[in-house]
């Protein structure tokens, strides 16, 4: 148990924290969303550039917070590029936790899933916006 815990800050996490993938902003994102964890104040913005076939061409994030929240947002962006929006809708919390490759305690899962939560809320909002357009 303690062995697993000690691996939390392994190279995979720390590398993403120190040299994040696509940290910053897209010039013209198709969609973006921000949220913060009210308990700790950690903050993540996710921006996507989606093409006409609903494929994610580019994913960027920005934010402030602990190594776990920031590294997981970086890992998330790297993982979702090239995926379709439908694939992202099917992407579950456990898939996100699996990508981190470390075991998070209940309290740290809120950190590890912050970017994921932002992505999911963004997709939901996007679908809401498209709904009236497609029906009208």
């Amino acid at each position: 148990m303690s062995g697993t815990q000690d691996d939390l800050y392994d190279d995979h996490i720390l590398d993403h924290f120190e040299s994040p993938y696509h940290k910053g902003h897209l010039p013209q994102p198709t969609c973006s969303h921000s949220d913060r964890n009210p308990i700790c104040g950690d903050q993540i913005t996710v921006e996507l550039l989606v093409d006409e076939h609903d494929v994610v061409k580019e994913a960027f994030f920005d934010g402030k917070g602990c190594a776990i929240s920031q590294a997981s947002a970086s890992i998330l962006c790297e993982a979702i590029e090239g995926k379709t929006l439908q694939e992202l809708r099917d992407f579950q919390a456990q898939n996100m936790l699996d990508l981190l490759k470390v075991r998070l305690t209940a309290s740290r899962q809120k950190c590890g899933l912050l970017g994921f939560k932002v992505l999911k809320t963004m997709l939901y909002t996007l679908d809401e916006q498209r709904e009236p357009a497609s029906s009208g």
């Binding site: 303690s2 815990q5 000690d6 800050y9 917070g65 602990c66 190594a67 950190c111």
Partner: peptide, 12 residues
Amino acid sequence: VHPHDLSDLLDR
């Protein structure tokens, strides 16, 4: 070192 990471590492 973010305070949460610090708290987590201190806890160990």
